[in-house]
Each structure stands twice: as C-alpha cells, then as structure tokens.
C-alpha cells in the first residue's frame, strides 16, 4: 500500500515551548486516521506542520513520497481547517465562487475555470445538499453552513488525501453525524485517505480505522482494535474512558 504521509522524529516549537516532541507515524493510502488528544496536545500544530503552514521544525515530513519542503502535488490534497478564522464577514464571494477556489490547485496560470469545472462545483454542492445556497454570500451563512461550504471546497478536486482539523466544532449533532457518514463513505467508496483531528473521541471510534493519540508525544498509534485491547491504554485512560472510545458501553 502506498504511503501518503511519513513523519519521522518531528519536533515543533512555539517560541521556546515545545509543542510536539519526536513524533513518528505514517499513513497509507485508504487509511482513516483519527488524531485525538487533550487541549494543547499539539494536534493542530501537527496538521500545520504537515501542510507547510509552520515553517520551522526538526525531523522529516514527506507527502506522497516527496519531502514536504519541495512538495508540489497540492491538487492531490484537500484541507478543511477548524474554522475560517479571520474571515472578513463582508467578503463579497458567493458560495459557488468559494467552492471554485478548491479547483485552483494544480492548474496552470492563468488558472481559468472551464465548463467542466463549474459542473464539478455544481455536483459537489448537490452532494453536500447545499446547492440551494450557491448564490448566497459566504458571510451571510451560519457557522454550520460555512463549514459545509468549506468541506465542499476541500472535496471538489476529488483529493486523494483529506486533512481536517476539528471540522465538526461548529456543526449541530444531526449535521455532524451526516458529515461523519459522508467522509466515511468517501473513504470506503473512493478510497480517499482521511486524516481527522478531533476532540470527539466518542464518535471517531465508529469511523476511523487507526488512531494517533497525542499529548505532545505519541501516546498511542495503531488500529482501533489494538487500542481497545491495549492494557497500557487501559491503565492510561482507565477502563471506563477506554470503553467509551471503543463503543463497548
């Protein structure tokens, strides 16, 4: 199985504070990896380091077999951030225009979009049930609607690897469940490799095939079965918490 992500001895610092210490793991094509851990455990730092948004680090990161520093296959990758951060509420783009931006990766200048691209955007909006929002301005939408638009933007290019950082934080429970099901379906049907950072340890166990438990260091990396049968993890979490994660309750 092709290795899409390989991280070796990764150490990242925020100023003088070490956010991640000697992290090593790999993700193969078709994996669904859940990255969990407490607040401040370095989950988002790891994602940012993988995506080149955190330039200073020690160790090795490779994406699709290429060193991250010279990685160029951005069209193979979709990214959904935790939230839109400092999005200007007056930003004048429609939902359709925002989703279109997901098709720019891999296009040659002047990166114009053709009829086929617009059809692709339309299909993705329909798949996520937000085609009725396509002419609405992004700043007019609720947090949950904006997050679905951003998911459409991340998925519209049919990426081989989908990286998501706490994507369900702004979603209500019903939409959150549909979101998880949709991602699981893409992983199963299209073979999309998924890397999902979440606090939602209770739900991720239903979908992810592997788990990386972080607390600045890797506390556990392996399959869910291994996690659920690990005496070390039982001792670390306590049986009750471990059972909640493993859905044995």
């Amino acid at each position: 199985m092709q290795e899409l992500i390989r991280v070796e001895q990764l150490t990242c610092c925020h100023g003088a504070v070490e956010a991640l210490s000697e992290i090593s793991f790999s993700v193969a094509a078709g994996d669904y990896l859940g990255i969990v851990g407490p607040n401040g455990s370095g989950k988002s730092t790891l994602v940012r380091a993988l995506l080149g948004l955190m330039p200073a680090y020690q160790g090795q990161i490779s994406l699709f077999g290429q060193s991250r520093d010279c990685f160029s296959g951005w069209e193979r990758l979709g990214y959904l951030p935790q939230n839109l951060g400092p999005l200007n509420p007056a930003f004048p783009a429609t939902v359709f225009e925002v989703v279109q931006l997901g098709l720019l990766a891999g296009k040659a200048l002047p990166k114009r979009l053709c009829r086929h691209d617009r059809k692709q955007v339309q299909d993705m909006l329909e798949l996520l049930g937000i085609d009725h929002l396509q002419r609405r301005m992004i700043g007019e939408l609720s947090g949950g609607q904006q997050q679905r638009v951003m998911l459409a933007r991340a998925l519209v290019n049919n990426p081989e690897l989908l990286i998501m950082d706490e994507p369900t934080a702004a979603l209500d429970p019903e939409i959150r469940d549909r979101f998880y099901e949709l991602v699981a379906q893409m992983n199963k049907d299209k073979g999309t490799t998924v890397l999902l950072v979440t606090h939602d340890t209770g739900t991720i166990g239903q979908y992810a095939s592997r788990m990386l438990y972080l607390d600045k260091k890797v506390l556990f990396f392996g399959s869910f079965d291994e996690f659920c049968h690990s005496p070390e993890m039982s001792a670390f979490f306590g049986e009750h918490s471990q059972h909640l994660i493993c859905h044995r309750h």
Binding site: L51, G52, L53, S72, W74, E75, L77, Y79, P81, L84, G85, L87, F91, A93, V98, L101, G102, L104, A105, G106, R153
Partner: peptide, 10 residues
C-alpha cells in the same frame, strides 16, 4: 479569501 488555504492550494 484566506492566506493559509491559498498556501495549501500551492
């Protein structure tokens, strides 16, 4: 729209 998303689009 967003500098980080732009960077991740290459």
């Amino acid at each position: 729209f967003n500098e980080e998303l732009a960077a991740v689009s290459g």
